[in-house]
Nucleic acid binder design. Structure first.
Lengths: 230, 230
DNA sequence: TAGATTGTTAATCGATTAACAATC
DNA sequence: TAGATTGTTAATCGATTAACAATC
């Protein structure tokens, strides 16, 4: 996972094998929230924001925001803060959101259909351009005006359409096979809704969407007064 | 977020205001994956597993698994490893998954309907027992055999049914209001699918499900060869 | 200018890992 | 017993925070 260096690097930074600065993944994962918040400010006609104000909105510290941004350059003005529109655009460019990314979706159960119909991807730089299912039950039907293809055609479609991003919404038993075929076609980023740990080459980035695990980790903290099941 | 101490505490550990050991949240968040993996082994009739084998399956280090478990006690046998069934049950108890938790779901668009119909919650200790929507469009209709209630009844239903866990699948503009009303009813854990940062008292745990941010952070790493939009 | 806020460094905090004595 | 693997400590690594000089 190589970093892109936009500014001359500080002498203290670490470098990867390409001589580029290694930016912590935890920083990269915060950037979309910065973009989203800055865009909300822009939409509300707020032109300028300080790291302190932005931090309050997001629920992090101002120091963290300034430090995160410093990996990429200097985007603010002392005494003034940041231009919301400029900073949103700048971070979006860093994340390569200044283009539209075609995405392949596999699995069209309840969840897959909800994903296929979701209106939030397109304005966020992603377009689902091909949808696949296993077996003939759904194949040939349409979802959100797209014909459902048999997953036999997954790899070749990914190659032909130059798709680099896949979404897996299949039952868990099929997920690894689908991941393998996505990777074979050139996918480098997978959003995985199936509750399994996918094994992929380390050139491929995976993010898990795992609501059950999220719930299961929260019950640890619930201050429960009932005696059901105890 | 207070920890539960199951074993006498090591002298070096940190304690919270109740004198209980503070277990890092990052550890708690890994436990569901341990449970899931151990249950898969049990289902496959694997009776025993070493930290090394478990680590390989999950994609973490064996040292991390042993250290995580050591916060709660001693569950293995030197030279032998862990009993899969026993360890799964033990961690499930730590996470309080040895009971069924009633859950309230708010928002019944495409996503909310997929959540309401999802078969994976019930075997994972959660039952959606009440579903709500805003406005009269959906109210009175059924989803997964549950009548959709008007969200005017959200707080009182949560109180009456002693619900401690909420799922928010509303448009982002309503999410904070719904969260406030969940908290007013006694909800202490919220799974939030809306792309907003919810402000809640620090007695309430929140987990975000944010597929757009997940995608937007992955594009940073995609080794793109095309020139579209550049 | 005076006040505000950035960008950056060093200090602190916390999490992961390596190592190994204990022990099954 | 010999071999394997745990549980735990100390060392290392990495991320966050506090502080402040630079500067708008």
């Amino acid at each position: 996972m190589g970093g892109v260096l936009l500014e001359p690097s500080p002498a203290s930074a670490l470098f990867d094998s390409n001589g580029e600065q290694q930016i912590p993944d935890i920083v990269i994962r915060r950037l979309p929230i910065y973009v989203r918040t800055l865009r909300a400010l822009t939409d509300a006609d707020v032109r300028s924001v300080s790291s302190e104000e932005l931090a309050d909105l997001i629920g992090v510290t101002a120091a963290q925001i300034r430090r995160d941004l410093s990996y990429f350059g200097k985007f603010g003005k002392q005494g003034k803060g940041y231009d919301t529109h400029f900073l949103a655009q700048t971070i979006a460019r860093i994340l390569r959101l200044d283009r539209q990314w075609p995405v392949a979706l596999v699995g069209l159960g309840n969840l897959g259909r909800a994903i296929a119909n979701y209106r939030g991807f397109t304005p966020s730089s992603f377009s689902i351009v091909a949808v696949f299912d296993r077996g003939s039950r759904n194949v040939g039907n349409c979802v959100n005006d797209m014909e459902i293809l048999h997953d036999d055609h997954l790899t070749d479609t990914i190659v032909r359409e130059r798709i680099r991003i896949g979404i897996i919404a299949t039952p868990k038993s099929y997920a690894q096979d689908i991941a393998d075929r996505m990777v074979a076609g050139g996918v480098e980023a997978i959003l995985n809704y199936a509750p399994v740990i996918l094994k992929v080459p380390d050139t491929v980035t995976i993010r898990e969407i795992d609501p059950v695990s999220a719930l299961q980790s929260m019950t640890y903290y619930v201050h429960d007064r009932s005696t059901i099941g105890r």
